[in-house]
Amino acid sequence: MSKASCTTPPAGRPVVITGASSGLGKACALHLARVGFHVFAGVRRPEDGEGLRLSATGRLTPVVFDVTDEKTVLAAVHEVTGAVGEAGLWGLVNNAGIAVTAPLECVPSELMRRQLDTNVTGQLLVIQGFLPLLRAGSGRIVNVTSGLGNVAIPYLGAYAAAQFAKEALSDALRRELAPQGIPVTVVQPGAVLTPLWEKMSDAGSRALESAPEPVHNLYRSTFPRFMVNNETSARTSRTTPDDVARVIFRALVAKRPGTRYGVGRDARGSRVLARLLPDRAIDRILGGIVTPAR
């Protein structure tokens, strides 16, 4: 079977992508517009949307909303509905997210709620809002998670918890929406250097510094070392935001999209580890992260 017969051309089809202000979302929005989709790019600030529009080649319409704010999500659904009409949507790419990095003992409840609200509850809110348009357009959903949706590593437990939850949400949605002909696909990027990493480092350092001194002392040698190694891994990764954008494109044009696509050797490797190794073996592999240097 030829490649052409297995894909649907973009042909100006409308797609919504969240978290398009920077990083993976920005790369994806620009790529999808460049290859022929009409992209409705979700951003939190008007100035980010204007910058994105000026950078785009092809059709890109910024839409200002916050996935954690139901009022702005409903306004975005109304705006997109007015633009696409009865034709509906071809795709919804749920990319918006934050990453809380700190020992779980140091993560304040407010920060944990923000992690889950942005990466899980907010994603469901967006999906619920746009599902009528996806039904009208015989569309599909692409949820961007992470290789940490396969294996939870020390000091990224809050983020991994959100990604595991988003994986479960995606599986349930795929099964619930299959009778309606709406495919749900997960894209799992590995380490990719984006502005998210700097935010992770700053937030993690603040969380550790705000912990009581006895708790701070337990992690003050291992956590900073982890942050340095984590950033080094991202900087030396061969996976780029454009690599992720191309995989999201595949998920949007495939006649029968896969349930999951890993992007990068580390993301694919974590999935293999989770499938093949017992928990204790994975614990031993990751144990060096939490062992103080001698």
Rank of each mutant, 00 (worst) to 15 (best):
V73T: 14
V73K: 06
A75S: 12
V80D: 00
T81M: 10
A83D: 11
A83Q: 12
A83K: 11
V84I: 04
G85E: 14
G85S: 11
G85F: 02
E86R: 14
E86N: 06
A87K: 09
L89G: 06
L89H: 07
L89A: 03
G91S: 02
L92M: 03
L92I: 00
V93C: 00
N94T: 14
N95E: 08
A96T: 12
A96E: 05
G97N: 01
G97P: 04
G97H: 01
A99N: 09
V100E: 11
V100M: 13
T101S: 15
A102D: 10
L104N: 14
L104S: 04
C106S: 09
P108N: 13
P108H: 13
S109Y: 11
E110V: 09
E110G: 06
E110N: 03
E110K: 10
R113N: 13
R113F: 08
R114Y: 11
Q115G: 06
Q115L: 06
D117K: 13
D117Q: 13
T118Q: 02
N119K: 01
V120Q: 04
V120A: 13
V120G: 11
T121D: 05
T121A: 11
G122D: 01
Q123Y: 08
Q123S: 12
L124Y: 13
L124F: 09
L125D: 08
V126M: 10
V126I: 10
Q128T: 13
G129S: 07
G129A: 04
G129L: 04
L131P: 00
L131V: 08
P132F: 08
L133N: 03
L134Y: 01
R135K: 09
A136R: 05
A136Q: 07
G137Q: 04
R140V: 12
R140P: 04
R140N: 14
N143H: 12
N143R: 05
N143S: 15
T145Y: 13
T145Q: 02
T145F: 12
T145N: 15
S146G: 15
G147F: 01
G149W: 06
G149D: 12
N150K: 05
N150I: 03
V151L: 14
V151Y: 01
I153M: 12
L156V: 11
G157H: 11
G157P: 07
G157A: 05
A158N: 06
A158W: 04
A158H: 04
A158D: 13
A158S: 08
Y159I: 11
Y159L: 10
Y159V: 03
A161K: 10
A162Q: 06
Q163R: 14
Q163P: 05
Q163C: 09
A165M: 10
K166A: 09
K166L: 10
E167C: 07
E167S: 14
L169P: 02
L169A: 08
S170P: 12
D171S: 01
A172P: 02
L173C: 00
R174K: 11
R174V: 07
R175Q: 14
L177K: 08
L177Q: 00
L177C: 03
Q180D: 15
I182R: 06
P183R: 06
P183G: 04
V184K: 01
T185W: 05
T185C: 08
V186C: 14
V186M: 15
